[in-house]
């Protein structure tokens, strides 16, 4: 019940604050920009340099998904940082919602958006051989990734500038989505421990049970550890 009213409140807040509304549509903008690049720049490159992007298509989709959910995570992270500076989160923490409820509320909200944008992203950059199951899986993983990024920023940064520094550093995580392109054993091995690598793997080999299992385990482990760390600091 409490969660529902808060959701409604969140929605109200977002609708009333035009900035937040626009920001929620920002992932859409990102998708459009990438689609435009695909439509115009790719043929241009192909004509000029003979570069064929087709084999790299899974990476493009993986990149779009990760950028989208990463962006939603960053926005949520900064929303929470701003609320902490404005002492709003302190206020919410002493209501029946509590500290964990507050966090859950923010993260779940962003994650739902991530699922929606995940579907949209996949629909726009369609790859022919993705089953419905894979699409759902990718969207859910997007939700996890959003929560991971949001929590990393919120719990890792004491202030806005640290938050920005963090966000900048987190961008490098996307590199792991391309890890196997480099064929460096150490890099590939390192990538195993990071979610982006497995998103690419699922897109490349959607039927591989191993990839699916690893993807889920790694995502859940990251989120689990972060939540554990966050709630332990409370006591």
């Amino acid at each position: 019940m409490i969660h529902l009213t808060l959701f409604k409140n969140d929605l109200k807040q977002i609708v009333r604050d035009p900035i937040m509304t626009l920001l929620l549509f920002a992932p859409l903008l990102l998708i459009v920009v990438f689609k435009l690049l695909e439509l115009f720049l790719v043929p241009y490159l192909a004509a000029k340099t003979g570069f064929d992007i087709t084999p790299y298509f899974p990476y493009v989709l993986s990149f779009v998904l990760l950028m989208n959910s990463g962006m939603l995570g960053i926005v949520t992270g900064f929303m929470m940082l701003d609320e902490r500076d404005g002492n709003i989160s302190q206020l919410l923490e002493v209501t029946p919602l509590g500290r964990n409820g507050y966090l859950a509320n923010r993260l779940i909200f962003a994650s739902i958006l991530a699922i929606i944008y995940g579907f949209i992203g996949i629909a726009v950059f369609k790859l022919p051989d993705l089953s419905f199951f894979t699409i759902v899986l990718l969207s859910v993983l997007s939700a996890f990734y959003t929560a991971i990024i949001g929590l990393l920023i919120f719990s890792g940064a004491e202030d806005k500038v640290k938050g920005l520094t963090f966000a900048k550093g987190l961008n490098t995580l996307v590199l792991f989505a391309f890890a196997d392109l480099f064929a460096l054993p150490w890099l590939t091995f390192l990538s195993w421990f990071f979610p982006p690598y497995w998103v690419t793997m699922i897109i490349k080999t959607p039927d591989s049970l191993i990839a699916i299992c690893f993807a889920i385990v790694i995502h859940v482990a990251w989120l689990g550890i972060l939540i554990f760390r966050y709630s332990r600091r409370e006591s």
Binding site: I19, M20, L23, V75, F78, G163, L164
Partner: peptide
């Protein structure tokens, strides 16, 4: 007033 506002305005 907020980082999010700022990031949006830069777009």
């Amino acid at each position: 007033n907020t980082v999010n506002q700022y990031m949006l305005k830069t777009i």
